[in-house]
Amino acid sequence: MSLQAGRLLLAEPFMSDHHFKRAVILLCDHEREGSVGFVLNKPMGLDIKDLVNDFPDFSAEVHFGGPVQTDSIHYVHTKGELLEGAMKIEEGLYWGGNYEQLKVLIRQGLLEQNDITFFVGYSGWGEGQLQEEIEVQTWILAESDRNYIFQPQNELLWKSVLENLGDRYSVMAQMPIPVWN
C-alpha cells in the first residue's frame, strides 16, 4: 500500500509517545517536502463552540489533531466544492477552506455534523521522515473509511481498524496497552 493522502496511519502497538499511543491518523497531505495528518481517535471533550466565540449554533466535538501548532483549529469535511480554498484529500474529502464561508454554510444548513470533523493542532513530518517511520514499522498503513472520519470516535477505533485489516493485524488489535516500569 502506498503512502498518500487519504490513507490511515495506525500507531504500532508498543508506541509509547503519549500523543500517538494507539492513534489513528488521517493523512491529509503527503508531498516530497513533508506530510500532514490529524489524529481521529483522541476527542478532547470540547465542542467547537467552546473554542470559537463567534461560531454558529452548531455542535461538533473537537479532536486533538496532533502536537504541532496546538493553537490552531483545522477541519476535514465533505463540502470542498462549496468552500473556497479547500484542499482535496481524495474524492469527496477535503481539508480546510475559507472559514467565513464555513460559518455561512453552517448557518444555511448546508453543512451538518456528519460532514465535518474539527481538530486542534496537527501531526506533521518533515521531508522523508514519515517514509522512514513507515520503513521501521512505527506506523501501519490502512485504507480510510468515511465512518472513521465523521462518526464519533474514541480509543476503540485503533482496535477496530486493525481488526478490519485481518490476519496478523487482528491479533495485534487484541494486545493490551503495555505498562512500562
Rank of each mutant, 00 (worst) to 15 (best):
L10H: 00
A11K: 06
E12N: 15
P13G: 10
M15S: 05
H18S: 14
R22P: 00
A23Q: 03
A23M: 05
L26P: 03
E33Q: 05
V36C: 07
G37R: 00
G37D: 01
F38C: 06
G45M: 09
D57V: 14
S59L: 11
V62D: 04
F64W: 01
G65P: 01
G66M: 07
P67M: 06
P67N: 09
V68W: 08
I73T: 11
L82N: 07
L83H: 08
E84K: 15
G85A: 14
A86W: 02
K88M: 15
I89T: 07
I89F: 06
G92Y: 06
Y94G: 09
G96V: 05
Q101T: 12
L102C: 06
I106T: 08
I106C: 11
I106V: 15
E112G: 06
N114V: 05
E127G: 07
E132H: 10
E135S: 13
E135P: 01
T138Y: 07
T138W: 08
I140V: 15
N147M: 08
Y148G: 00
P152A: 07
N154Q: 13
N154G: 15
L157D: 07
W158D: 01
K159P: 00
L162N: 12
E163A: 07
N164A: 12
G166V: 12
M175V: 11
P176V: 13
P176G: 11
I177Y: 11
W180N: 11
